[in-house]
């Protein structure tokens, strides 16, 4: 056992067969250890019938590694991978609903939107929806700037992430089918 360890943010990427109930099977592994899932995203992959769970947690490396190994044990899980922050490209998306009135008075908001790499998604008679894609701190910063103008509603997605490692999902699957075995696709081991 390692002595006191620092907590950090990890991205866990899980490739699975498409089977109902699997979300539950994965999340109870965290619940059991009383670990909080900070964000979760489930999506299709480039391979039909294969899903990808992207899970964000704050944890020590040891705990995160144990969880990843236990996820790997699930029969329908093809592979489960642990990434540090600098090992993935990732984005989140946020939507901000603002009253239209705020835009009528001056063009400050429009400037804020433009300067922060956001865009206006919808313009309706009584509200406008702004969309921002980026890292969490960028979204947070934009939110701070928009709040004085009357933020009606705010929502942010879980993270989607793609590893910097070169291997592609279908190559990984081919290896699984040939050897029925895998080694970790990332380089933490």
């Amino acid at each position: 056992m390692k002595e006191k360890e620092q907590e950090e943010v990890f991205t866990i990427s899980v490739l699975t067969e498409n089977k109902s109930g699997l979300l539950n099977a994965i999340t109870i592994i965290f619940t059991r250890r009383k670990m909080n899932i900070e964000a979760l995203n489930v999506s299709e992959t480039e391979i039909e019938g294969v899903s990808r769970f992207t899970i964000i947690i704050q944890s020590t490396f040891n705990r995160a590694e144990q969880v990843v190994k236990q996820i790997n044990k699930l029969v329908e899980v093809l592979g489960s991978f642990l990434y540090r922050e600098d090992e993935v490209y990732y984005q989140e998306i946020a939507l901000f609903k603002m009253g239209t009135a705020a835009f009528l008075n001056n063009n400050t908001i429009e400037r804020v939107v433009r300067n922060n790499g956001a865009r206006i998604l919808v313009i309706e008679r009584d509200h406008i929806v702004i969309e921002k894609t980026g890292h969490r701190d960028e979204i947070r910063a934009l939110r701070k700037k928009l709040e004085p103008f009357g933020l009606l509603e705010f929502v942010r997605s879980g993270r989607v992430a793609i590893s910097k490692a070169r291997r592609k999902t279908h190559e990984f699957l081919k290896e699984l089918e040939q050897a029925n075995y895998f080694t970790s696709e990332n380089n933490y081991q």
Partner: peptide, 10 residues
């Protein structure tokens, strides 16, 4: 065999 399940490591 099941492609997503490896019972015995090599």
């Amino acid at each position: 065999g099941i492609r997503s399940y490896k019972p015995v490591p090599d």
